[in-house]
Computed example of a mutant assay.
Amino acid sequence: MPPTLAFDVYGTLIDTHGLIPLLGEMAGEETAPVLSRIWREKQLEYSFRRALARDYVTFATCTRQALDYACATLGVRLTPAERDSLLERYRTLPAFPEVPGALARLQDSGARLYAFSNGTREAVEQLLRAAGIRDAFLDVVSVDAVSSFKPDPAVYAHFLAQAGARADRTWLVSGNPFDVLGADHAGWHTVWVQRDAAQVFDPWGHEPEQVVSDLNGLTRLATTWG
């Protein structure tokens, strides 16, 4: 059975800080990076909290509520039109520059490529198509089907069922340490995409099997998946 590569989407393939230039126009250039960081941190925190509380809403709702929190924290007053524009643009965030080429090379390696995301299937399909990378994947697997979020063990079991894959032949590729740890707990192989050299992996006593600085590094690892 060829190896299965499950790619996280937000923060791994797609740049979640891709709206900083637009945020700069609305909130000021100095505020924009801080606003983007708080927005992303709260988006993930809300998904964790809702999964634990079994109070599921879609990832888009977490995103909207996190934006409202970030703006309130920094005293940024968006008009309704600006808020709507940001949320609409979030549906078409850009891919990181090396992603299209790296995915094309990985397709040639014989591995089975899937997108695996907290976003709904519809949202992820739109995001990948807008970035021009949807055709790289056999399918999109969303946590929405089990009404929870990563790193709930149920979502990793759901992926295996949907992809017809075995844990010991599946690699998670993610830029998010919590996702890597969740997949490791589920018995998967793991690759951490450490795009920021200053980012620290959580010291939980479980390290990713491989660390790469971007997706180009994956093509150099393809022989280890055999």
Rank of each mutant, 00 (worst) to 15 (best):
L5K: 02
L5D: 05
L5Y: 00
L5R: 03
L5E: 01
L5F: 00
A6T: 03
A6N: 00
A6I: 05
F7V: 02
D8H: 04
V9K: 05
V9T: 02
Y10V: 04
G11T: 11
T12D: 02
T12R: 05
T12P: 00
L13P: 07
L13N: 07
I14R: 09
D15N: 15
D15M: 09
D15L: 03
D15G: 00
T16Q: 14
H17N: 14
H17C: 03
H17T: 09
H17W: 05
G18P: 09
L19K: 01
I20S: 02
I20N: 02
P21S: 08
P21M: 11
L22T: 14
L22C: 07
L22V: 15
L22Y: 10
L23Y: 09
L23F: 15
G24A: 14
G24W: 14
G24Y: 12
E25H: 13
E25Q: 14
E25A: 15
E25Y: 07
M26H: 08
M26T: 04
A27F: 03
A27I: 01
A27T: 05
G28A: 12
G28Y: 02
G28I: 08
E29Q: 14
E30D: 13
E30F: 05
E30L: 14
E30A: 15
E30N: 09
T31L: 11
T31Q: 12
T31H: 08
T31A: 14
T31P: 01
A32S: 11
A32I: 13
P33I: 13
P33N: 03
P33H: 11
V34C: 10
L35R: 02
L35F: 10
L35G: 06
S36Y: 00
S36R: 03
S36F: 03
R37W: 04
R37E: 13
R37D: 09
R37Y: 01
R37V: 00
I38M: 14
I38R: 14
I38V: 15
I38G: 08
I38Q: 13
I38H: 13
W39N: 08
W39F: 14
R40D: 07
R40A: 13
R40F: 13
R40V: 13
E41V: 13
E41Q: 14
E41H: 12
K42W: 11
K42S: 09
K42L: 11
Q43H: 11
Q43T: 12
Q43N: 06
Q43D: 06
L44K: 05
E45C: 12
E45D: 12
E45Y: 08
Y46A: 12
Y46P: 09
Y46D: 09
Y46I: 09
S47G: 04
S47N: 02
S47Y: 08
F48T: 02
F48G: 04
R49V: 12
R49W: 05
R50H: 07
R50A: 05
R50Q: 09
A51Q: 03
A51W: 06
A51F: 06
L52W: 15
L52K: 01
L52P: 00
L52G: 04
A53M: 15
A53G: 08
A53N: 01
A53V: 04
R54F: 08
R54Y: 00
R54A: 14
R54K: 15
R54E: 12
